[in-house]
């Protein structure tokens, strides 16, 4: 028992080592938050381009680039993308690693968000587009006022899940020496030679965050269902 308490002390208390975890958590949350924002903006734009092209045949060039973006991002591991952005694209630029993290995870998430949003748009009855058109609303207006609000409601749970996935995915940020939550735990492990406690602590923090967010999503879904019944 004494030995365990000693390990606890060494892992978290001595030398303020708990700060590796709290600072790491802060970094993780910052990256996740801004990456989610970036991902949503990118995702909605790409989805708009893709579905406009599918429905009207316009935006051919943009659609071409959107398709390449989706294929490349969804076809390669996020960790490789992170490494390329840091060591290749920003190789000769001094830049805050957090910004690199936000860019990498945001660009990655955008591709998945785009497909979620597109599926949401596709799920709306084509009659809604026609009703908008027959009232003189052009495609962008119909999209904005009629299709998107309905699609958004349908995809909200999927979008929220994407945020949760993104939160966990940022754990590879340590590969560019970003001191996120995972890296924080790993630093403690490397100085104390004690793996169990710091890694379990890291896992627990992720778990609490994810379970908390998931229950929020579930609540959201229940509320949305309610309004469906009118």
């Amino acid at each position: 028992m004494d030995e365990f308490l000693q390990k606890l002390y060494d892992t978290f208390i001595y030398d303020d080592r708990w700060k590796y975890l709290t600072n790491g958590l802060k970094t993780t949350l910052i990256i996740t938050f801004f990456a989610v924002l970036l991902g949503m903006v990118l995702g909605f734009l790409v989805a708009f381009v893709r579905s406009t092209h599918d429905k009207t045949g316009k935006l051919k060039v943009l659609n071409f680039f959107a398709k390449i973006y989706l294929t490349v991002i969804r076809g390669t591991p996020v960790m490789v993308q992170l490494l390329i952005i840091y060591y290749v694209i920003f190789a000769s630029v001094r830049i805050d690693k957090i910004v690199v993290g936000v860019l990498a995870f945001g660009i990655n998430s955008g591709a998945y968000v785009a497909e979620i949003v597109r599926s949401g748009i596709m799920s709306i009855d084509p009659g809604q587009f026609e009703a908008g058109a027959s009232l003189g609303l052009n495609y962008p207006r119909t999209m904005l006022y009629i299709i998107m609000p309905q699609a958004f409601k349908n995809i909200l749970p999927a979008l929220a899940n994407e945020c949760i996935v993104l939160l966990k995915e940022t754990s590879v940020a340590g590969y560019i020496a970003l001191e996120d939550l995972t890296k924080g735990g790993d630093i403690i492990r490397s100085v104390t030679y004690e793996a169990f406690l710091p890694l379990i602590a890291v896992a627990l923090i992720y778990l609490i965050l994810v379970v908390g967010l998931s229950s929020l999503v579930a609540k959201l879904e229940r509320r949305l269902k309610k309004s469906d019944r009118g």
Binding site: G127, E130, A131, A133, S134, N138
Partner: peptide, 22 residues
């Protein structure tokens, strides 16, 4: 642009209503 102007003056009622549910 012209087409949408014309549609403002040409109402349409559909078999399946297509009201905006939201």
């Amino acid at each position: 642009k012209q087409l949408y102007k014309v549609r403002e003056k040409m109402g349409m009622v559909f078999q399946h209503f297509h009201l905006f549910p939201h």
